[in-house]
Computed example of a mutant assay.
Amino acid sequence: MACVFCSIMSGGLPAHWVAQAPDAVAFLPLASGSLAPGHTLVVPREHSVGVQDASPAAFAAAGELIQRVALAMEVALRASGVCVLNASGPGSEQSVPHLHFHVVPHWEDDEYFAWPEASGRRVEGDLAGALRDAIVG
């Protein structure tokens, strides 16, 4: 199955473009998936499924464009802040298997809560040590 974001970037599907940079793009999600006025998706042009398999260059390109979009939200929408959200992998509720970030504008009185509830799963032991030992690179 073809990647919907790759199809959008190649011109095969329409988009409401916010920005197009050499290595990343920004566009509005479908209206049914919008979390707030101006909610924007930032997508690296390089195809990877999520944070686990993305290259450092894809992260850098996305990060630069995320910052530009966030600053534009302050100016154009008078947002007082933004939340940057990502889901990567089958257990994360990722809806499109192409690395992407949701940049969601917020205002002090919007009553939107972006922090998830704490997980009910508990893992015992030295979590910092286990993660430290598993760090690659």
Rank of each mutant, 00 (worst) to 15 (best):
M1Y: 02
M1C: 03
C3D: 15
C3F: 06
V4W: 00
C6G: 01
S7K: 13
S10I: 00
G11R: 07
P14I: 01
A15Y: 01
W17S: 09
V18K: 00
A19V: 03
Q20V: 13
Q20I: 10
A21D: 12
D23S: 10
A24H: 07
V25Q: 03
F27N: 08
F27P: 02
L28C: 06
P29R: 05
L30S: 12
S32I: 10
S32A: 15
G33F: 15
G33K: 06
S34C: 15
S34W: 03
A36H: 11
A36W: 03
P37R: 12
H39Q: 12
T40I: 09
V42R: 02
V43L: 11
P44G: 11
R45S: 10
H47M: 07
H47Q: 10
S48Q: 06
S48N: 10
V49W: 00
V49L: 10
G50K: 05
G50L: 04
V51M: 15
V51P: 01
V51D: 00
D53C: 12
P56V: 13
A57P: 09
A57S: 15
A58Q: 04
A58L: 07
A60S: 15
A62V: 02
G63Y: 11
E64Q: 14
I66H: 02
R68M: 07
V69K: 01
V69G: 02
M73W: 01
V75N: 11
A76F: 04
A76H: 12
L77E: 11
L77D: 03
R78S: 14
A79N: 05
S80A: 11
V82Y: 02
V84L: 02
V84P: 02
L85R: 02
L85Q: 07
S88M: 10
G91M: 04
G91C: 00
Q94L: 05
Q94V: 06
S95F: 08
P97V: 00
P97T: 07
H98V: 06
L99A: 04
H100C: 04
P105C: 09
P105Q: 01
H106W: 05
H106F: 11
W107I: 06
D109Q: 11
P116E: 07
P116I: 07
S119C: 08
G120I: 05
R122T: 14
V123A: 09
G125P: 07
A128S: 11
G129W: 03
G129S: 09
A130S: 12
A130V: 08
A130N: 05
A130M: 13
L131F: 14
R132F: 11
R132E: 15
D133A: 15
A134Q: 12
I135D: 00
V136W: 10
V136E: 15
V136N: 07
G137W: 08
